[in-house]
Amino acid sequence: MKIIHTILMCFLFVNVSNSQERFLTKNGAITFFSSTIMADIKADNNQVLSIIDASNGKMAISILMKSFMFKKALMQEHFNENYVESDLFPKATFKGEILNFETLKDLETKLEVRGLIMIHGKRKEIIIPASFTRSENTIFVKGEFNLLLSDYNIKIPNVVAKKISKEIKVSFEFNHKPYKK
């Protein structure tokens, strides 16, 4: 009977410690830029969800495509209707792990995050460099990287080919706080 109790307590303990080591943000920021000679296009999303499990360095990000805000409403409509097809693929996600997460201390540290990114229903393995800062109650992450639209089956019609870059610059900033269920 004692053994059973011990096992039970162990599991409960694992559970509790596990949930304490998760860090979450619901208002992470992602901005993307497309820059060509003809036009600069920029969109912001300040409702990105991101979570880090500090016990094992795993990380996940969830992005609602319709939360990207453009300067022109018509651009936003085209983005959702014609390019990323938000009705069919409402979310973009990332799931992976932070490499050498255990080396992260309170100083700003450059680390790489490796995992699977999914945009427009297409999955791709990706390594994203990011800078991490950890304090007692936060894990702050920021960085930027480039995406090729062709990797995600997002087609640009010829008439607007000069206005939309094939390569999109993405920058992000997440300030994770301890996650309590």
Binding site: N18, L24, A60, T93
Partner: peptide, 14 residues
């Protein structure tokens, strides 16, 4: 224990 991080995000999505 094995709950996927993405599932947590799904639940937390406002």
């Amino acid at each position: 224990f094995g709950q996927d991080l993405l599932d947590i995000l799904d639940n937390e999505t406002p």
